[in-house]
């Protein structure tokens, strides 16, 4: 099967210029990134501030294009501007700050903005608005002003706005950074469901470790490169390496590792509270 996203040695340089337009400073934000994402996958990208993960995200719907290397989204080269519109329809993007991406006074109009701009017929727009608002469980708020929604609800409206354009893939760049625990949970739940039920490819960029446990595959970025790749269990079993990239492991994994250090025999790739407590209770029973 053809990969949905294929990055080959992608390099991106931000250059700063003086008044005459001469380059004075070059910052290599991406330094040879290779990634392949299969359609329908839930992929998480972890990385410290400044590791290049947002720059990479912006490449996925051609907001930025590689300085070197190539990136294909759904088989289309993002460097070719003729592909821009198609790529942006197939790969939608949700940003960190919900307040920066909502533009209408009424929720349903905001969701309809995307499909309207790509020339979807009116009845079809309304059908899609209804469907996508139901998908993110925001249908009952459709006539309200987005101003009165919580952060998590606003992010779900933003996701519905992307869904209404019928993308194959949604890229979320730290969608929960500004939300409270409840809002975070609701956004992550929505994203998971879209992945499972609608088979939407998800690229989730975050530095909350608890959010990536459900991903099929995790990439860890550092200094513009992919430093680690694997399933969440494989990644979190390598805690020392993660610390090197200014990341950490979930608290419960940390507890498990501390116990192993003390000679307790439990698996070292524990990700959930129940998993740890079950393993411990079993151990106690056999004593």
């Amino acid at each position: 099967m053809r990969p949905f996203i294929k990055a080959e040695n992608v390099v991106h340089e931000y250059s700063r210029r003086d008044e005459e337009g001469n380059v004075t400073d070059i910052n290599r934000a991406l330094d040879g990134v290779d990634i392949e994402v299969t359609a329908g996958d839930f992929v998480a990208v972890l990385g410290a501030n400044g590791s290049g993960k947002s720059t990479f995200a912006k490449h996925l719907n051609a907001l930025l294009v590689p300085t070197e290397g190539t990136l294909y989204v759904d088989g289309k080269d993002t460097s070719d501007h003729n592909n821009d519109l198609k790529i942006r329809q197939t790969a939608g993007m949700v940003f960190q700050n919900p307040d920066n991406q909502i533009i209408s006074n009424i929720v349903e109009e905001d969701v309809g903005f995307g499909p309207e701009n790509i020339g979807v017929p009116t009845e079809e727009i309304w059908r899609r608005v209804e469907e996508s608002l139901k998908n993110v469980e925001m249908y009952e708020y459709r006539k309200q002003s987005p101003n009165h929604l919580s952060g998590g609800q606003k992010q779900r409206v933003a996701i519905a706005g992307i869904m209404a354009m019928k993308p194959n893939c949604i890229i979320l760049d730290e969608p929960t950074a500004m939300l409270d625990p409840e809002g975070r949970k609701s956004v992550i739940k929505t994203v998971r469901e879209l992945n499972k039920k609608e088979n939407i490819t998800i690229i989730l960029i975050t530095h909350y470790m608890e959010e990536v446990t459900a991903a099929d595959y995790v990439y860890v970025m550092g200094s513009g490169q992919i430093k680690m790749r694997g399933t969440p269990r494989q990644i979190f079993a390598r805690s020392e390496e993660l610390t090197k990239y200014k990341l950490t492991i979930p608290e419960v994994t940390k507890i498990a590792l501390e116990l192993i250090k003390k000679g307790i025999q439990i698996p070292k790739d524990i990700l959930y509270v129940e998993e740890l407590t079950n393993a411990l209770l079993k151990l106690k029973m056999h004593q």
């Binding site: 410290a48 950074a177 470790m209 200014k246 990341l247 950490t248």
Partner: peptide, 8 residues
């Protein structure tokens, strides 16, 4: 600490 990575 909103928006900072674990080290931050």
């Amino acid at each position: 600490v909103a928006g900072l990575d674990p080290a931050g």
